[in-house]
Design a protein around this nucleic acid. Structure first.
Lengths: 193, 193
DNA sequence: GTCTATATAGGGATAGAC
DNA sequence: GTCTATCCCTATATAGAC
């Protein structure tokens, strides 16, 4: 990626990949169908023309690229550490830290989970499926190396993922991020010796 | 409710409260923003005129009444048994049975959870909050009567709810209802002696 | 009460000037 | 590459005939 250091200041024509996180936030706030082009232009400071120049496929392409970026972030900060850390407990720790950070301690929803539930689910089914499957698989690998039996590690990985997602739903429903932080704390205690 | 026995056959002008479940299903399939009046008219067999005659507040009122109906169903089939069963384990069993049935063993999403995540969350925040809080509270009561300490029962109730929600998200994301049934099975084993 | 027709607004998307 | 103006469509909602 041939880009210089400082990304622009959030208003006044940000570059294409500086715009992606802003687009992501609009989707998180309003959902896929709920997000309108007007909101997208306002959030990015880009006119419709520029948006369609960057993303000829319109909203659908924007969402797809947003998912891809999220997936990339998790690949670097979560999946890879889980798979590659020499000390598997260190991998788990990094997963929990990154997760807590990414979801802003429960104040930020999971866009991928939202897309899984929403009406747009079929549009992005493959990406959504891949994201969770790669997370589950990397987590299972770490749990197995931490001393678990193979089948049991797989089940535990699934359970942990689902608790994270559920905590995000409930935190939002109760308007209490504490649900999320409590859950992560409990997961750490249960799975990191 | 002054209504006779048999509700109409799903097509050709169902009555107002026969329409509600059909409306609910449209919301579940397409989300709140994703659901259009055309889809609502098609699913119910009612013209727009009739729909607005029944629900002058439009989509928002329909969704609100759908949530109220869901809430009522859970009150009767889940919350009340949890609170009132003489044998608290019997209450837990009835909760898990009703939950598995309601969500069609993981093939049906939780509309209330969806609304919690989506852009419409502020519109229905109070109802969403109330639904989960009453569930949590009833469940905590049962767990406490089953022999748990008060604070611990509260935490366990929160954890169970969140696992159910997370399982629904992941089941949809993975397109594998088994995630949900496995989770419920595990929860039964862990909490029903 | 139920329908058809219509009003009005906003959606996504494109064309073309700059 | 970026904007403005515009296209077409579908959305929600309403009016009025029956």
């Amino acid at each position: 990626m041939p880009r210089a250091a400082a990304t622009s200041q959030k208003h006044s024509a940000p570059s294409r990949d500086a715009a992606l996180p802003l687009i992501a936030e609009v989707f998180r706030l309003h959902g896929y169908e709920g997000a309108s082009l007007s909101q997208l232009t306002e959030a990015t400071g880009l006119g419709k023309g520029s948006l369609y120049n960057f993303f000829p496929g319109g909203k659908e392409q924007m969402a797809a690229e947003v998912i891809a970026e999220i997936d990339g972030w998790f690949e670097r900060n979560v999946f890879a550490p889980l798979r590659d850390s020499a000390d598997s407990c260190e991998g788990l720790r990094r997963m929990f830290d990154a997760t807590e950070q990414y979801f802003h301690s429960g104040r930020r929803v999971c866009l991928v989970g939202m897309l899984a539930l929403g009406s747009s689910r079929d549009l992005f089914a493959k990406q959504v499926h891949g994201y969770f499957e790669r997370w589950r698989s990397a987590l299972a690998s770490a749990l197995q190396r931490a001393g678990g039996e193979r089948a049991e590690a797989g089940r535990a990985a699934e359970a942990i993922l689902l608790e994270i997602q559920g905590a995000l739903v409930l935190a939002r429903a109760a308007d209490d991020p504490g649900v999320f932080t409590r859950t992560l704390k409990r997961l750490r205690q249960n799975h990191i010796p």
